[in-house]
Design a protein around this nucleic acid. Structure first.
Lengths: 355, 355
DNA sequence: CTGAAAGCGCTTACAG
DNA sequence: CTGAAAGCGCTTACAG
């Protein structure tokens, strides 16, 4: 076929013996352009297969209609749902998404931010990489007047809109449910404590214990890297379970901050012939698809990631449509839903009074 | 904070009493710019926090360094891995990805294509929506001289590079393995036959049967919508299994073109107390994470989606770096790996001679 | 070693 | 109702 030059407004203008101004106005259906001209323009658009050049428009208008989205990894169902949620909201508004992955690394995260800024995105929606402990790079975004929305893993004290899941309450609900099932020696697989969501989950766990007069036992709390390759987290859960059950205090439940760690626990418990949920009840976090497939079905917390994506997109739109200066960042929080499956339903213990 | 205008080349030029030309050249480390000037420019870049405006560069150069990627849905692990595979290859080359979802719908797919073309992407990497039967819209991409790479679900006779998984051979391997385990009445959950991958899988299945002198039995072949919400496909597998096992000919194996359909089959078989793999052996397709988690472990075909993404990106780069006119599209094919798990390992039948 | 000028494709205030 | 002109921020052939 050879090189086919793309049709421009100027091409159409020449064809019709008018100027580019007129064609441009006709295309945007400007009221003071004659119907005849508009009709002629529209016909040529079809005939010459004209596609507006958004890059030129963006340069001229100073608005790209592109939103940058940073996810730590696109491999996880959770983040795929976030993306879908964002897209649902912004697509109708003419925005396109550029998706970047930080791979949980701070330097990649910073490179992503720079790349998005260079590309002149209209806003950035991001979740912080696990490695990141200093959030100052994100301030750069706000300093350039680019709206910033953080979701799920947010830094503290960043001047940005945030959408979070109420991790404290999610953990609290899970542990309370375990206590109601009669469990009293509840272990916790905790995530890295420099990350707020894992702090909150640990705190929710502790609060539920103390509210039910169960003493904290640090032997039952194990911290581990729960953000990692799925297989590695699974392995970690497996190992932690073996550790737990070779100790003095044997737990009767595990509340884990990761579904994948529980999958490893299930494997270990089956090997040790410990019955679930009769001897040990289990609850995971995130309600990954695999938790409904494994046997026994794994109770877990549904963080409603698609809804989280919806909200993140809405916060972006709100900010970009606002003329408040300086903009006061809005915060939204979602309540996670406890999905009860057989891994934590101790039917025959239900009647038993708990402490 | 207020409005902070972004620093431009012109701003830096003014500050240094040189022209934008000089600054531009200094930034790109042009040999005929004095070291003193370069140094001064670099210092101001830091100080004024200058970010190049890629939109302007793209307009000027006619190259955006953006690649458009169309996935039918970002919710599936398979497509997440494709994206990761593409990104791995192109990121180092300075490209950014715009990800679009067609949601399996032809009209959204066409809107995606138009949006990407307007944004002046340097190329498009796409997998065809299940609804699409006429591929002419994709020709538009090629006609505008924009490189097009199709992966996994490709249309026939499209003038585009393609990366596919050898579905015929994958199915052939799976069914041969079942036959070697002693199975002779092998059912097949087939996908929609207007989609080439499902045709190929059916044909691979049939060829394996005939190569082993097993007669085709159309009662054992059920076509269904295997591209759908995970839950619906699971339900379909469940229903198909009930249908199969209430019929005259009872199968001793199922080869399914979808992992999720087998998850439904497992559920149905457990209800009917039919043992896996002793009474019915199972093999799925795609090696979804859930297939390693379900019990019994589900044998499946690993299509190596990340590698597929790598190849797709490489084909794009090859094309864009080539000056062959017209470009002859390249085709790559990957051999799927059969992952054998307990759902198809009939140890005690292995010795038994098969037909 | 650096500058002046033109242009990528579009939009818009100004003018008529 | 339409045009001429300027400009978004950058790059590059031409010139000196």
């Amino acid at each position: 076929m050879g090189k086919i030059k793309k049709t421009t407004i100027t091409d159409i203008a020449k064809e019709l013996n008018v100027t580019a101004s007129t064609v441009s106005r006709a295309l945007r259906n400007h009221p003071r352009i004659s119907d005849a001209t508009k009709k002629a323009v529209w016909e040529l658009v079809e005939e010459m297969n004209y596609q507006p050049n958004n890059i030129a428009t963006a340069l001229r208008k100073g608005k790209s209609n592109i939103i940058g989205v940073i996810v730590p990894t696109s491999d996880r169902q959770f983040f795929a749902s976030i993306i879908r949620g964002i897209e649902e909201v912004v697509r109708g508004k003419g925005y396109n998404l550029i998706i970047c992955q930080s791979d949980e690394q701070t330097d990649k995260e910073q490179k992503n931010i720079d790349a998005l800024l260079r590309i002149q995105v209209d806003g950035i929606i991001a979740s912080v990489a696990k490695e990141t402990r200093d959030y100052s790079y994100f301030e750069k975004i706000n300093n350039l007047n680019v709206p910033l929305v953080l979701y799920d893993r947010v830094g503290e004290n960043i001047n940005a809109c945030t959408v979070t899941s109420d991790d404290f309450n999610g953990a609290y609900k899970a542990v309370t449910h375990l206590i109601e099932q009669g469990c009293t020696k509840i272990a916790h697989f905790a995530g890295q404590q420099h990350i707020k969501i894992y702090q909150d989950r640990l705190n929710g766990y502790l609060k539920a214990l103390s509210d039910h007069n169960i003493e904290r036992d640090d032997n039952l709390i194990i911290e581990n890297d729960l953000i990692n390759d799925t297989d590695l987290v699974l392995k970690a859960g497996y190992d932690m379970t073996y550790d737990l059950f070779s100790d003095v205090v044997i737990p009767d439940a595990i509340f884990s901050s990761s579904d994948f760690a529980v999958l490893g626990a299930i494997k270990a418990l089956k090997e040790k012939q410990i019955s679930i949920p009769e001897e040990v009840a289990l609850i995971g976090y995130s309600n990954d698809f695999s938790s409904s497939v494994v046997e026994p079905g794994l109770s877990s917390l549904d963080q409603q990631p698609k809804l989280m994506g919806n909200h993140a997109a809405e916060l972006f739109l709100e900010q970009i449509e606002s003329d408040e200066v300086p903009y006061t960042p809005k915060k939204k929080s979602l309540d996670p839903k406890l999905m009860i499956r057989s891994s934590s339903s101790i039917q025959h213990l239900k009647a038993k009074p708990h402490v």
